[in-house]
Computed example of a mutant assay.
Amino acid sequence: MEAVKEKKRVIREKISITLSAFSDSELADKTKAVENRLFDFANFFESKIVLLYINNVNEVNTEQIIKKSLKLNKIVILPAIGTKNHEIKLLKIDNVETDLKIGSRGILEPDAEKCKLVPVECIDIAIVPGIALDEKGSRIGFGDGYYDRLIPKLPLTARKVGIAFEDQIIKQVPTESHDRHVDIIITEKRIIYKI
């Protein structure tokens, strides 16, 4: 188990170095290409209730995805991460400017006092963050296991979609028994269906 954790740490470090080498314009172009591919993806286009996330470092920037989803009248759900028991609350946002605050991890998340709690079984599609993924749908996050606990609770009909840059796709993610997979990965170059 410790060997797997160390392998994941090394992968996170390598991805961080790779992504930090991108120029601002390269990063913007890659991000826009991921966004375009996501919005052209039929499962996303047809969905009504979308679970998104606000990116942390080494994750695809989701700001424009969230804003465009709101403009398309999708019901946008974002996670609020609790410090107790590593819980995730799923909250509906209506406005990026007024419904977010800095959360326990130091990034923006929905303000529980302003946003409505949404049951997990309402989600049509879940966009799942990842620092590294492989073509089988295995993923590495930040190591706190929030999404490993959330993914099994999502409806069976909800697509679990990882978005990442092609440089974040690796040959094989080292996994542990508690790790959960995504069904589909969207990069700036392709859509990968779990095989």
Rank of each mutant, 00 (worst) to 15 (best):
T157L: 14
D179M: 00
P155S: 06
I17G: 12
F44E: 03
N73L: 00
D167A: 06
L100W: 14
V76F: 00
L52K: 04
I54K: 14
Q64E: 12
Q168N: 07
K7R: 05
I93P: 06
N73G: 00
N43I: 04
V10A: 08
E166K: 14
V120F: 05
T83I: 09
L90P: 08
F142D: 09
I77R: 07
A3Q: 14
I54W: 13
I186W: 01
K67R: 11
V10C: 01
E113C: 04
D111V: 05
I54E: 11
D24G: 05
G106T: 12
V120C: 10
K136V: 05
I186S: 06
G141F: 01
K48D: 10
V10T: 08
K74S: 00
E176R: 06
K84N: 10
I170P: 11
D29N: 13
D40I: 02
I107F: 15
G143F: 02
G143C: 05
D99N: 15
K194E: 14
F41D: 14
I195D: 15
G137F: 12
S138Y: 12
D24M: 07
V10M: 06
V120A: 10
L27T: 07
K68I: 03
I170W: 11
P155A: 06
K48M: 02
N58T: 02
A3S: 12
S20P: 11
K7G: 00
T62W: 07
D99W: 13
L52Q: 04
R139H: 09
L100R: 15
T31G: 02
N56P: 10
P129L: 02
E46T: 02
E63W: 00
E26T: 05
I185F: 00
V60M: 11
S138E: 15
I192Q: 03
I75V: 11
S25L: 09
E87N: 12
R139W: 00
R139Q: 08
E109G: 05
D111W: 07
K14M: 10
R159D: 15
D183F: 01
I77Y: 06
V96Y: 15
N85D: 13
I185V: 09
E2I: 05
A28E: 13
E113G: 09
N55Y: 08
N61M: 06
I140T: 03
C122S: 13
K32M: 05
D179T: 05
L51W: 04
K171S: 06
S23A: 01
E135H: 04
I170V: 15
S47Y: 02
I77L: 00
E135M: 08
L108A: 13
Q168E: 11
T31D: 04
T83K: 13
K84I: 04
